[in-house]
Computed example of a mutant assay.
Amino acid sequence: MMTLLLLTLPSTSPIAWHALKLAQSLIHAQHTVQVFFYQDAVTIANGLSWRPQDEPSLGQEWQGLGIDLPVCVTAALNRGITDEDNAKRHQLSTTNLLPGFRMAGLGELADAMMIAERTLQF
């Protein structure tokens, strides 16, 4: 069973953490999980976000799952998050997309929604 998790909330939201816990549980139960980071959830992939040492990083937790982590390119660029290709294309001075995350278009979200047996939005 393939489950698509559509994340729209930033890492500061407790609900965004619930999405991670659900993904971990589904993976542990050997279900197929796809995610898509959209709207404010793209900030989870910001490599320049700082967290105190005693607070976990939601982005690093997602990295640890070892799954594909697509991030909406338009939402990310609009929030100051970019990868190397888009930094060159838009003449930006640096990149800050966390390793393991990748930029993707909404077409990928549409494709995932078509094949998912269920889609859950957080």
Results as ranks from 00 to 15, higher is better:
I81W: 04
G100M: 07
L120Y: 12
T43I: 13
E117D: 15
I81C: 05
W17I: 08
M2S: 13
I81T: 05
S49P: 03
L5T: 06
I27Y: 06
N46A: 10
P99G: 08
L5M: 07
D68W: 11
P99M: 00
M103P: 01
N78I: 10
L7T: 03
G64N: 15
L92P: 02
L4R: 03
A75N: 12
I115C: 12
M103F: 09
L120Q: 10
L4E: 00
Q34I: 00
L98Y: 02
V42H: 02
L77K: 10
A19N: 01
V71T: 06
F37S: 03
L65E: 06
G59F: 01
I27S: 00
M103L: 15
A75Y: 04
P99F: 00
L4Q: 02
M1T: 11
L92C: 07
L5N: 01
R89F: 10
A23N: 05
I115D: 13
M114W: 06
E117V: 01
A16E: 03
A75Q: 08
P56T: 13
L69S: 07
H31A: 08
A76I: 06
L98P: 04
T8F: 04
E61W: 05
F101G: 01
A87D: 03
N46F: 03
S13G: 07
M114G: 02
R51Q: 15
H90C: 10
A87F: 08
L20V: 04
Q39K: 12
M103T: 12
T74A: 15
A76T: 08
L98D: 03
D40W: 02
R118W: 01
